[in-house]
Design a protein around this nucleic acid. Structure first.
Lengths: 159, 159
DNA sequence: CAGTATCCTGAACGATACTG
DNA sequence: CAGTATCGTTCAGGATACTG
């Protein structure tokens, strides 16, 4: 039943956007940094305490994420201190939320002891639990079996 | 504006479901294998050709994914041949689709040349493009700023 | 506090040869 | 065809010391 959800002609998947995105954020700590950013963490020291990774790795990942436009460095200065920086999510980072929420809910459902994890995400509007889903342009839910995968011709027909 | 999307008390994130899920499927080739599975790839040799990874790595990942319940091995036998196996996605794998679609659309939007990737996913019902989103229990879209993150007490209050 | 520099280890990966 | 076995390498990451 499931094998026919998507059936592609052999489009060139080496240029696949999944692979591209993973090459940017697929390293071990990167998504966890983003997770903490959405938890409100902004400062180097706090990332370090919560992630328990090495400062060198943290520094490198923050730099990559900043250069990629997922975080922006915002200067601040406590009175009498030198300028320091906070790391805040950009709109591009927010657009990764479905991925983060999707990873979380999958782990909740399949890896947590009783099917629920240590964190819930609710809508402020009505208190309902939220979840990642696939929707069409009208916002209507699309079932996996109704999804059709289409390779996009590129650089062949026009000029 | 964005920093307050979620604001958590310091719940213990080492047991975070995002981290758990990533520890299972966060290795370099795993998600790309799943991608190909949803493209209809089922056989070892075809994975190998499309992924261009080493057979040892492929074998190990297929095993992990099968043991984790994301793929199932289905025997088949061509007449006169010995039994061989196909790898097909389980329901648990289908539940990862929002993650895959989310990764793809983020790459399309932020890494592809002209904002579109080599593959489109459309709804068979109405031909519309689909995308990963965050919805509430009624299926209504939830904006990131309306999301509220709540730590779940565990093992403290009852008994 | 907010990082950078250095050294080291291990694991993931690539290449390749081999097997039923 | 569908894998397993072996070997070598590279690179991410851990530990730790250091700097403005």
């Amino acid at each position: 039943m499931l094998e026919s959800i998507m059936k592609a002609t052999a489009s060139d998947l080496r240029y696949c956007s999944i692979a591209s995105t993973l090459s940017l954020i697929g390293e071990k700590w990167t998504i966890l940094i983003l997770r903490d950013v959405f938890h409100g963490v902004t400062r180097f020291d706090e990332f370090l305490r919560r992630l328990e990774c090495s400062p060198a790795v943290l520094s490198a990942r923050l730099k990559t994420l900043t250069e990629a436009g997922l975080l922006r460095r915002v200067g601040y200065r406590e009175p009498g201190e030198r300028e320091r920086f906070e790391y805040r999510p950009t709109r591009a980072a927010v657009e990764l939320l479905p991925v983060l929420v999707g990873l979380m809910q999958w782990g909740d459902a399949h890896l947590a002891q009783n099917g629920e994890g240590p964190v819930q995400i609710r809508s402020r509007a009505n208190g309902q639990l939220v979840h990642a889903a696939i929707v069409d342009e009208d916002g209507e839910l699309v079932s996996p079996r109704d999804m059709e995968l289409l390779p996009v011709a590129r650089g062949t027909s026009n000029t």
